[in-house]
């Protein structure tokens, strides 16, 4: 119960911030919440199941393009477009899982990386439909969901908070359920789980589809809330980002992805004021984290203060 109370407390604080934050940080926090939902999806696979994917941008982009192309070319309204994004993410992650889960460890990382790269190139190749690198803007009129204009600052923040809250609670519930326990057991000792009679492949497949679905939903929401769909979101960089956020915040903790995304977002935001080479910060952070703090922020909290932290 205490765990639910703490996570609900975070959501309450975020809601309170909606009324108090200055406009600039208000907008940033909305972005951070959507990206943190992406990171939470990544964390389910990496932190809890122990599968390090280097290709999650494929799912993020699948959701974003599923939504964006649905609106642009099929004339869908936002609600079915979001669902289309979610569905395309689930399908793509299911297909990739069926192939990539035949490998493990380093091979899994490279296979996911290669598929994501192929996906990125495919977006560029069909430039006439996707507008390639340039991307396309989703007009304000197309972003009205059930009478609520999502391009307005306040509505956008609340929508991001709703998405974030849903993903947070689903993650929390999932990792405390019997299913989530099996995922952690797979991370710790796959052979023993198999020996105990669990279907390891089915569990991994389900984990990857949930993870991919959550990433896709975040991607679709990002496109819808901020009105832009572009190939950058399918590039390698967007596969590395969730890894970085989750590592920083703490892999295998429910709150970690949000903490990591928040810190990294502001760090890069500050850095890009100083230099164009802002990805340097990401590189340094990755190296330092793997060297000195593989547990991340919340991992340290769990180790030192509160062992039951979910």
């Amino acid at each position: 119960m205490r765990a639910y109370a703490i996570h609900a407390g975070l959501l309450a604080i975020l809601l309170a911030l909606h009324f108090t934050l200055p406009a600039y940080h208000h907008g940033n926090l909305a972005r951070v919440m959507v990206l943190a939902s992406y990171a939470m999806g990544y964390n389910l696979l990496f932190g809890y199941t122990g599968l390090l994917s280097l290709g999650h941008a494929l799912f993020f982009a699948a959701g974003m393009y599923g939504m964006g192309l649905g609106i642009q070319h099929l004339g869908l309204s936002p609600a079915p477009a979001l669902l289309l994004g979610l569905a395309s993410g689930a399908v793509v992650s299911g297909l990739l899982a069926a192939l990539a889960l035949r490998t493990s460890g380093v091979a899994f990382m490279i296979v996911t990386l290669m598929f994501a790269q192929a996906g990125y190139l495919t977006v560029l190749y069909f430039g006439e439909v996707t507008r390639g690198d340039e991307g396309f803007v989703i007009q304000q009129a197309q972003r009205v969901l059930w009478g609520v204009d999502l391009s307005a600052e306040g509505n956008r923040y609340i929508a991001a908070l709703l998405l974030f809250g849903t993903c947070l609670m689903v993650s929390l519930w999932l990792v405390r359920s019997a299913f989530g326990r099996v995922l952690v057991a797979i991370r710790e000792n796959e052979d023993r789980v198999r020996m105990l009679g669990y279907d390891v492949f089915a569990h991994k497949l389900a984990a990857m589809m949930i993870s991919g679905g959550m990433a896709a939903l975040a991607g679709a929401a990002y496109g819808l809330l901020f009105g832009y769909v572009g190939a950058t979101f399918a590039s390698v960089q967007y596969s590395i980002f969730p890894l970085l956020w989750v590592l920083l915040g703490g892999a295998g903790t429910v709150l970690g992805p949000f903490i990591g995304t928040l810190f990294m977002f502001y760090l890069i935001d500050l850095g890009s004021d100083l230099t164009t080479a802002y990805m340097l910060i990401a590189g340094v952070a990755l190296v330092l984290l793997t060297l000195f703090a593989p547990q991340g922020v919340m991992g340290e909290v769990r180790r030192r203060f509160w062992r039951e932290l979910p």
């Binding site: 380093v106 990805m279 590189g283 340094v284 190296v287 984290l289 793997t290």
Partner: peptide, 13 residues
């Protein structure tokens, strides 16, 4: 692998 990804960005940037 994660560390060499970091190294990639450090050298490049």
């Amino acid at each position: 692998i994660v560390a060499t990804i970091g190294l990639l960005y450090i050298i490049q940037q």
